[in-house]
């Protein structure tokens, strides 16, 4: 029937994305790039496979449980990816050669401190910092 064909499309699409994610895990050179491959491919692939199963099951209770599992995976997977990236950055895990980091947080803090010192000095009539 039509439902089965749509379900087969979603199942094979999700399987394709899962396979691409695992190939990225094998092939890419770095912790950060491996995470970059998996954080997106795994979430999308799992969501598509679960949508395909929902089209096949056709029972209200089980469809509700599947929707709950899909929502949990869609929220949990990016959170875990973010935490792994933060841990890797804090531990100083080496990157692949040729890549660099722009730390916007430290730069904005430095800029704000400098502007505060400037405004204080201008109130007191002194010269500006360079």
């Amino acid at each position: 029937m039509v439902y089965e064909y749509i379900a087969i499309f979603f199942l094979f699409g999700g399987f394709f994305f899962l396979v691409v994610g695992v190939l990225g895990l094998i092939r890419l050179p770095d912790v950060y790039t491996r995470m970059h491959a998996l954080g997106k491919c795994d979430t999308l692939g799992t969501g598509m496979v679960l949508i395909g199963l929902m089209l096949l099951v056709r029972d209200v209770t089980n469809i509700t449980k599947l929707i709950l599992i899909m929502a949990m995976i869609i929220t949990i997977n990016p959170v875990v990816t973010h935490l792994i990236a933060k841990t890797a950055y804090n531990r100083g895990t080496p990157m692949v050669e040729g890549s660099y980091v722009i730390n916007d947080y430290v730069a904005s803090q430095r800029r704000r401190r400098k502007s505060q010192v400037d405004s204080k000095l201008s109130q007191e009539g002194g010269e500006k910092l360079k």
Binding site: L18, G21, V22, L25, V31, R34, M35, L38, D42, T46, V49, I69, I73, N77, V80, I84, T87, A88, R91, T93
Partner: peptide, 16 residues
């Protein structure tokens, strides 16, 4: 951390 990422993938596959 590579091992953590790989075990995460295996968990998702087991759920599917």
């Amino acid at each position: 951390l590579d091992r953590v990422v790989a075990m995460n993938v295996i968990t998702t596959n087991v759920v599917i």
